[in-house]
Structure formats: structure tokens, C-alpha cells
Design a protein around this nucleic acid. Structure first.
Lengths: 208, 208
DNA sequence: GCGGAACCGGAACTCAACTTCCGCTTCATG
DNA sequence: CATGAAGCGGAAGTTGAGTTCCGGTTCCGC
């Protein structure tokens, strides 16, 4: 562990600032492709710098990825905000989910941002604010859709989160993003009372 | 790489057979909890043996996990078979999906068995037969449900796979298995023509 | 232009897996 | 029971990441 800056808050030297930008750009590219699997050496190489320089700016791989994760959370928060501005609750949640699907389709880092397993402990702390903000927005989207009777009432925000997370995995597994999003949307509606379709019937699978 | 058995196919010595069982049992327990994250040292310790012994029976970590993966695939194949024996296509696919959700809820190894990223290259070869068998059964389940008009026709088996895979992730993320399965089921139905619900409407999200 | 603080580079270190090696132990056979 | 082949244990080797260190370089203020 090395201090990123020795004295309080002096503006970075010109070359240092330039390098910092290069590092973030390089890291972001790799994060989009490889998610948390990105390697510090690769970041350095892609930025045209030595590893030491990367570590001068980010004392830890995690410190670097937090930057990237936060950037993605902001994007998602914006999406949620935009969706909320839409009047119709149904269109709002639909727009959000489809936007997420589209973005997740081309950004491994974004997919992992919403997965528990890849979210290291310390990240939680750094991102707490964003996580909270995003949580509230999602809550709003879901609740409004529920009030409008367009999403089943027994679906908690946690379940919504889980579904979004699963959608990312589905897309990674090769599912068409549009379709995956649609399945999710339709699936969240209030289920029919009768069992004429596959949804609500009972007495299916069994055995150990 | 070390040969597992020197001479052709002599029956294992009594103690060796016992140990082999212990290793598989230990590994299976750990696989259920940690998936591919299980460690060879832990396996050995849990089996009450030395690491060397584990490697005598399984030349590689992968060789060991293939055993566990195959076991799980057999289980799933059985589930699919049972479901197929059911007359009603809707009940069949429903039973299968719910069974998967239940099992995935308590078995990290099973979840990872159906994820691409955790499936190493060489495993594909060992499991090819099972993978193929399972693929056909899933195909049957989906097609029958489609013919009965209970699953949208534009859903390919690959999409179904992707959805199952996503369901595993959703469950890992803390979603209630029952609910996740239900959402999937409802979501796979033929979508309504009208846009009165959130499913099929258009013109929602936008912007970059 | 000079001095020195800030910064850079990348070889070397660390650490946590997986894997190998080989002397010792145990089982099966005559 | 003797013998040797099969099997066992676990310390040591290997590998692939992340991280540190420090001599050399670059920039900023005078």
C-alpha cells in the first residue's frame, strides 16, 4: 500500500494527469471486454506505461476497478432517472430494462457490476452511495409499476435486482438481449388466476 | 500429468477404492458449496488424505470436477426425462424449470455447470455426450410446449438455455427460487398482441 | 538554466493456487 | 510370513497474478 498523493491536495503534474487519463481509458476498454478479469499488466501496456505508474495512481487493482464500476453505476442511474421521467409506469420500467439489456450485451464490466460474487468487499464501501441511490430509483420504478397493476405485487426490489442480474448472465450465455428483456418483462406481470397456461398450474415436477 | 493407473484395468486395491470414494464425497460437498472455487487441498483434508492421494486418483483438478459435473448432468437429465413423461406439455416444462430452480438454490456446482464462463475447454469434451443428450431433451420440452401454444414460438433452445443459466444467477443473487422460476415461466409464454401491459408496448427507453 | 520534488519504468518480490516427487506404508499373493 | 507392487503423504516446485522498490527521468518554480 502506497499513498497516492504525498501532500494534501495539490493539482497533479501535467504528465501525471495525462497518464491518469490514459490509464482509465485503457482500463475501461479492458473492463468492458473482460470485466474483473482485466490484468494490471495489460492495463499498463495498453496505456503505454509501466506497471509502477498504474500503481502510483491506483494503489490497488480494486481501487482502479471502483472507478470503472462507479462510472457504470452513474450511467445506470441516469437511465433510471430518464425512465422515471416518462409518465406511464409500464413504459418506464420497460425502457429501463431494455436499456439495461442493451448495455449489458456489450459490456462485461456492467454485467459484473451487478453480480454479487464479483463485487469485492471493499467496493461495497466505496460505492455505497451510488448503490443506495440506484436502489431507491429501482424501488420507485417497481413500485409505480405495481401500483398501476402491471407488475405482480409480491415482487420485492431484491427480486428485481436478482432478475436483472440473471438477465446479465442470460445475455452472457448467448441469449438475445431483446428477447431476454422481454421475457423478464412479461414474467413480472401479475400472473393469471387460472392454470390454463404454464404459469400458475401446480403438481408438476417431483422426486429427489 | 501422471497416469492414474499403470497397468490396463486391474481392479483397484481395497484401500484405494475406499479413498477414491472419500475423495469424491468430499469434493462433491465442496462443489455444492463453492462450485469451481473448491481447492484441492481442502478436498484432501476433508477426505482425510494427503494431496498426493487426490492427484493419484485424479490427475488434475479438472478431471475431478468433470466427475462432479457429469453427476449433476445426469441428475438434470433424469429430471427432464421425468418431466417428459408427463402428458401435458405445460406441466412438463413447468415441473422441469421449478425442479431446476430448487436444485440450483442449494447447489453452486449445479449453477456453474450451466454457465459458460466456468466451463473449461477440456470439460466440454468429456461431457459432450451428456451435454448433447440434455440438449435434445430440453429441445423436446420446449418444442412440445411451443406446439401447444404455451411458449412463444420465437424462443430457441439456446435462448432457453440462456434463461436457465440466468435463473441460476438470479437465485445466487438472492432471488427466491420459486419466484424466479415463475417469472421465467410466465415470461416465456406467447406475448399479448396489445400493449396494455408492459410486455409488448414500444417506444420506451432511448438516448445514449 | 538549475535544483529538487514528483513521477516513471519494469525487474523483482509475494502469495495463493495447482501439481510433482519420492521415501515410506499397506495390501494382496504364494 | 515374506515380498514387492500399489498406494500414500506432504514438503517442495511451478505458475500466474498482484504488488513493491528504487534508480533514473521529467516537470515546475525560482
Amino acid at each position: 500500500m502506497v499513498l497516492t498523493q504525498s501532500s494534501p491536495n495539490r493539482p497533479l503534474r501535467a504528465d501525471a494527469r495525462r497518464n491518469r487519463e490514459a490509464i482509465i481509458t485503457a482500463a475501461d476498454d479492458l473492463f468492458r471486454t473482460q470485466g474483473m478479469g482485466l490484468q494490471m499488466d495489460e492495463v499498463a501496456q495498453r496505456a503505454g506505461l509501466g506497471v509502477g505508474t498504474v500503481y502510483r495512481h491506483f494503489p490497488t487493482k480494486e481501487a482502479l476497478t471502483v472507478e470503472l464500476v462507479v462510472h457504470r453505476m452513474e450511467t445506470v442511474i441516469n437511465q433510471a432517472e430518464q425512465a422515471m421521467e416518462t409518465q406511464a409506469p409500464a413504459v418506464a420500467i420497460r425502457g429501463f430494462i431494455h436499456a439495461m439489456a442493451r448495455m449489458m450485451g456489450e459490456d462485461a464490466g456492467l454485467r459484473e457490476t451487478f453480480q454479487v460474487q464479483s463485487t469485492a468487499d471493499a467496493q461495497r464501501e466505496e460505492c455505497a452511495y451510488y448503490r443506495q441511490d440506484l436502489h431507491e430509483r429501482k424501488f420507485g420504478l417497481v413500485r409505480r409499476a405495481q401500483e398501476a397493476g402491471m407488475v405482480r405485487a409480491d415482487l420485492a426490489v431484491e427480486d428485481f435486482d436478482a432478475l436483472m442480474c440473471g438477465m446479465g448472465q442470460s445475455i452472457l450465455a448467448g441469449g438475445n438481449p431483446e428477447l431476454m428483456a422481454d421475457v423478464l418483462l412479461v414474467g413480472m406481470r401479475v400472473p393469471d388466476g387460472d392454470g390454463s397456461q404454464c404459469g400458475a398450474a401446480d403438481g408438476g415436477g417431483s422426486a429427489a
